[in-house]
Design a protein around this nucleic acid. Structure first.
Lengths: 223, 223
DNA sequence: GCAAAAGTGTTATCCCTACACCCATGA
DNA sequence: TCATGGGTGTAGGGATAACACTTTTGC
């Protein structure tokens, strides 16, 4: 049963993934309800053990797909957490990743390792297993910081979107209002956004032009 | 001999440390010559295995001290590298850290695990063991990026220094000239630098005022 | 007195911010 | 025609960038 033996003790290595989306006017995080021990029944970040011949990012993608059904996202490495007692079972070092997805991108499905999957507003998180609250905090800080000097928030947007929708995303994450004219001036000066030629008409007002990201997955560093 | 056994295979985890300094008008990296296999006799980053109950940053500090004699530096986590074949012995995942030290801070001494220790100019590195060249590249990119929006470069300075010396550090890392008046205006507007009241007289010219960092170890995020 | 690095201000330019009204539509 | 969100320009202030001469010293 205990058949993998080493001359010196080895820690276990996992990946955990913080997936953000913007939905119902809130910044939300994807969590799973743990099926196994420890912390059975508690909410936690999706993640799990790294295969012995598996690349770290591959591992994160696999766990994310297995536990939540989410696929095809651009992961960014966040930080590696390795406090000796962070897992009660054994020494576990976790490499945390984060990513942003458009809210309507895919339906969630709880899979083998998870009893449930759901979105939680960042400021209304349940108690989390392990040090996952700390991980979410750091991911949140990183996200807010990156809004300022990159186009990372564009990853929240679906294929086609209006400038008002994009502005709403910024306002929700920054928790403050943004000037409409300055925002549009700034966005339209960037080179990675363009009109699709289509418009959306919904409601008793002027139709909105639709835009697309020209290089999805690329995060432009700006300013 | 192989007495640490697990139900599933476990990777080994190491830390590696990229230490920068500015010396002889060049940006330099601290390397050790490997005493053991693999890559025996090759130059590599200082680093080694994480103790099973040891914090990651602790481990990096310990290895650095053991192998090079360098102590008391402020480490920042850089990135975690885990490609499956990056070490020929077994699966090894390494958490890389980086730090900056003043050039005259401490004398180096090769210790138990290292046959030699020395500084190498960043653009004249020898062939390195493992994927350490990749790690150094990433640390270098991070350093250059941080010059722009933080006071990280102040960590290169000794207790007392002149503004010309500080400017030279910026010019060496950025590989371009900096305007003297604008640079001084910018530095003196910061709150974490102050005159010591002393001056340095060396050579047939006006003596230079000496400055100190008011909060050593703190990296201010600016702009 | 001369060579060498230290030290010092002003101006022009660009970018960011603040701010208010007309437009196109569905009902 | 009215209510609703979409769309647009300009002016002022603050920060950044360019630029050259005087000061203090050792020899």
């Amino acid at each position: 049963m205990m058949k993998y033996c080493y001359q010196y003790p080895h820690p276990a290595v996992t990946t955990d993934i913080v997936i953000f989306t913007v939905r119902d006017q809130q910044l939300k995080v994807l969590l799973i309800k743990r099926k196994g021990t420890p912390y059975k029944g508690k909410w936690a970040l999706p993640g799990g053990f790294v295969g012995i011949d598996e690349d770290l990012e591959q591992s994160a993608k696999r766990e994310l797909a297995e536990e939540t059904g989410v696929k095809g996202v651009y992961l960014e490495q966040l930080y590696t957490f390795g406090a000796p007692k962070r897992d009660p079972r054994e020494r576990v070092i976790t490499v945390a990743y984060f990513a942003l997805i458009p809210s309507q991108k895919q339906e969630l499905r709880a899979d083998t390792d998870a009893a449930a999957v759901d979105w939680f507003a960042i400021n209304q998180l349940p108690n989390l297993a392990f040090d996952h609250e700390h991980i979410v905090d750091m991911a949140h800080q990183r996200l807010v910081a990156k809004l300022d000097y990159s186009t990372i928030a564009f990853q929240f947007m679906p294929k086609e979107f209006t400038l008002s929708e994009l502005q709403a995303v910024y306002e929700i994450i920054l928790q403050q209002e943004v000037d409409k004219r300055n925002f549009r001036k700034w966005v339209l000066a960037l080179e990675n956004i363009e009109e699709t030629g289509n418009e959306r008409r919904e409601g008793p007002h002027r139709p909105a032009k639709l835009y697309r990201i020209t290089n999805p997955g690329e995060v432009e560093i700006i300013k």
